[in-house]
Simulated assay, not measured.
Amino acid sequence: MADSKPWLTAETDSGEERHAPATMRNRDAIVAVLRGILPEQGTILEIASGTGEHAVYFGKAFPDLTFQPSDPDPECCQSIAAWTKREAVPNILPPKQLDAQAAQWDVENVVAILCINMVHISPWESSIGLFEKAGKLLAPGAPFYLYGPYLRADVETAPGNLAFERSLKSRNLRWGLRDVADMDALAARNGFVRESLIEMPANNISLVYRKAK
């Protein structure tokens, strides 16, 4: 993902759906992780849903859960709604226009939060807002899932991720790959503990946090 809007117009009748190629490459690996951490029932909030393709795929993979997609971009919300209608997935709620830096979110009663490929394509203040609101929304023991490329002091950064970092900075100096240690510290300040770090395809990782009990 080397742009703020890394998607294409999907070849559909409505023309409202957007397609992010990365979604097709990582969705099965993400679902495999989610199967081990999501509760059996309840509403799952996805922050920065983008095109909505992940939400639709997750809805099909977890029919007993309800998914609440969201994105600050109205064009993304339109795409989410179009994909949901096109695929006829009944357990996906209408998208909400939520911004990580907003004072509050118009959402409640969620049992888990997912955020995929947002942290590096947003200023650090967005990550702060993300964790602050997640800390207020989630009950003790609830999972908070992040996916994307991150830096680690004890692991050499892949050349592809270094190039990606340069590309991000060339577009916006406030963007960039974040260090896992910084994410852990931010999590701790908001009542979360990291449960696991899972290696994922294409030099990405999954970070699974839990609200402390």
Rank of each mutant, 00 (worst) to 15 (best):
L197R: 12
A158E: 11
R178S: 00
L162A: 00
N204E: 09
Q101M: 13
Q68L: 03
L130E: 03
A112R: 01
A202R: 07
G141P: 15
E75Q: 03
C115N: 08
Y145G: 06
P74L: 01
S196Y: 05
V107L: 11
T157H: 09
V89H: 08
A163I: 10
G141F: 10
P90Q: 12
A100I: 11
K136W: 04
D73P: 00
N204L: 15
L98S: 09
I121P: 07
A163P: 02
L173Q: 03
D71P: 10
S126D: 04
G129K: 06
C76R: 01
P95E: 03
W124K: 04
L114W: 06
L146G: 07
L186T: 10
N91R: 04
R189E: 05
Y145Q: 05
H120E: 08
E132H: 06
W83K: 00
V193R: 14
D71L: 04
V180T: 06
Y145V: 01
L114I: 04
A82M: 04
R178C: 03
V89Q: 14
N203T: 14
E87G: 12
A134R: 09
R174N: 07
L98R: 10
N204A: 14
A202D: 00
N117V: 06
D154T: 11
I121S: 07
I128A: 08
I80K: 12
E199K: 01
S167A: 02
S70R: 15
A88C: 12
Q101V: 11
Q104S: 14
N204V: 01
P140S: 11
R174T: 04
K136E: 10
A82D: 09
G191F: 13
R152N: 10
L138K: 09
D182Q: 08
V107W: 11
Y150H: 06
W105V: 10
A188Q: 15
W83D: 13
A187P: 14
K169I: 05
R174Y: 02
K133N: 06
I80Y: 08
I198S: 02
